[in-house]
């Protein structure tokens, strides 16, 4: 079966106009089936875009996209708890829960999606989530393909969707502390939204000059872009139903088109590689997690064998 393409929530703090323009283009031009809207990372950013979600969702729906409202990964403060409760109770959009606080507020049996921050690593965990109304699960980015293969069978048996991130930086860690603010000698409470300075994350290089990580507010991300384009045919064969593209500050329309061609069997992997090369990403690709190796690695031989 041909997997669907999804666009994950924007992880960075892009201003509202940039986001609206971005989603307008996605609505018109990107061959994705589903778009996740909402803030995963920092509740201080929420007021800037939450007021536009309805309008943007409407725009995307007109463009033929299915829209899912995705929630916060870290929930601690009153406003964050309220955000979870509001999301659970609203009936307009399908929702993706990323914190157990969100599950707590769900009315009994209400259908929902389980996001990548919920640690759905195994069959028993997913079976539990489905018994509570989960209809779709995105696995943690670090889950290897060998485990995804097992979960895809479980998901098919349970009749739910199973989604894997195939493009974009991996979220590696979340903290209560804002590392963006810290770099500028500030704290989370007086951050002055300095994370807006880095539309693709703030570099963290090692003292020996290696590119290593990216800071995005309270989130720490991989420097490399996960790119599992060569693994798509294998994922389709094992029954992964949805492939998630995480927005980066690059031409996401072209990224979506490349993946669309691959899932449709149009063109070969060399052509796809050449098209990715032409995009000149600021970071190298990686597929280590999928192959059960260090996440930053790019396993060329295995990727070729699978293709």
């Amino acid at each position: 079966m041909k997997p669907r393409l999804t666009l994950g929530p924007i992880q960075y703090f892009w201003d509202a106009d940039t986001k609206r323009d971005f989603y307008a283009r996605i609505a018109d031009e990107a061959p994705v089936d589903t778009v996740y809207l909402g803030e995963n990372v920092c509740s201080k950013r929420q007021p800037f875009f939450d007021q536009h979600i309805e309008e943007v969702a409407e725009r995307l729906t007109r463009g033929g996209k299915r829209v899912v409202h995705s929630g916060l990964a870290e929930v601690m403060l009153k406003r964050e708890r309220k955000s979870c409760a509001d999301m659970a109770e609203q009936g307009m959009l399908e929702i993706e829960v990323n914190n157990a606080a969100g599950l707590f507020h769900l009315p009994e049996g209400k259908p929902h999606r389980v996001g990548p921050y919920m640690n759905a690593y195994g069959e028993e965990t997913i079976a539990w989530m489905v018994s509570k109304g989960a209809t779709h699960v995105t696995v943690p980015t670090e889950l290897p393909g060998s485990s995804v293969e097992v979960l895809a069978k479980t998901a098919a048996k349970l009749g739910i969707g199973l989604e894997v991130q195939v493009f974009g930086r991996a979220c590696l860690a979340t903290s209560a502390r804002c590392y963006h603010a810290r770099a500028y000698g500030r704290t989370k409470d007086n951050c002055q939204f300095v994370c807006e300075e880095h539309s693709d994350g703030m570099e963290l290089n090692t003292r020996d000059g290696q590119s290593f990580l990216r800071v995005n507010g309270i989130q720490t991300m991989s420097h490399s872009y996960v790119n599992l384009f060569a693994e798509v045919p294998a994922m389709a064969a094992m029954g992964v139903t949805d492939l998630r593209l995480m927005p980066q500050d690059t031409d996401m329309i072209e990224v979506a088109r490349i993946f669309d061609d691959i899932r449709d069997g149009r063109g070969d992997m060399e052509t796809a590689q050449a098209r990715f090369d032409a995009l000149s990403f600021v970071a190298p690709p990686s597929n280590g997690f999928w192959h059960g190796e260090a996440g930053h690695r790019r396993i060329t031989a295995k990727a070729a064998a699978l293709a």
Binding site: A73, E74, Y117, N119, Y121, P140, T141, E142, A170, L172, A173, T174, S175, A176, R177, L213, T220, S222, G288, F289, G292, E293, A294, G295, H296, R297
Partner: peptide
């Protein structure tokens, strides 16, 4: 501990061994 525990894949990114798994 600085990172939210149970949500950290930093070691796995560098080494291929996972804190969670």
């Amino acid at each position: 501990g600085l990172m939210v525990e149970g949500r950290c894949s930093l070691t796995n990114y560098a080494t291929g061994l996972s804190t969670n798994m």
